[in-house]
Amino acid sequence: MKRKTRRLWLVITCVAALGTAAGLTLSAFSSNIQLFMTPSQLNAKPPPADRTVRLGGMVVAGSVKRDRKGDTPINRFDVTDGQSAVTVSFEGILPDLFREGQSVVAVGSMAPGGGFMASEVLAKHDETYMPKEVAEALQKSGKWDPKFGPPPNAASWNAMTQKQASASVQGK
């Protein structure tokens, strides 16, 4: 029966060794696994204009300018990570979830004259799910403005029902 104990330890050792190896590899390649660069990183070390990179951050409130060239919409907006900002220009239709205060990932490259030329813009939504009525109630009560960041602590509203939310909106 000693064989079984030995096999158990063998399995534990192998799994632990493999886990360590995987952990070390992942932490070594961590920067390559990141999906996007932040505006600070981009400003600190601007990549060459011919390299396609992904830029991620929050759309700055009040920075969105929509224009048209024929049928194609032309959009300019600032993306920030709170410390630094980059102006993105994008020709094309923005995703439905795009709005001020939303997180986005823009695929493109640095323009020669500064700024970021995006060929694709993806909207990133956060992990918060709430009914329309609850979101309205939070905004009406002044607890939250979606333009300026994520919603307040979930514990304060996640038990709120649609009815309560509508009632509190009408009560104001």
């Binding site: 990133k124 956060d126 992990e127 918060t128 799910y129 709430m130 919603p151 602590n153 979930a154």
Partner: peptide, 18 residues
């Protein structure tokens, strides 16, 4: 950093979901 959002239901803290 990923495009996929973090978990809404965690062992620590209230779920960030109605």
């Amino acid at each position: 950093n990923t495009l996929h959002q973090p978990d809404s239901i965690t062992l620590r803290g209230a779920p960030t979901m109605s």
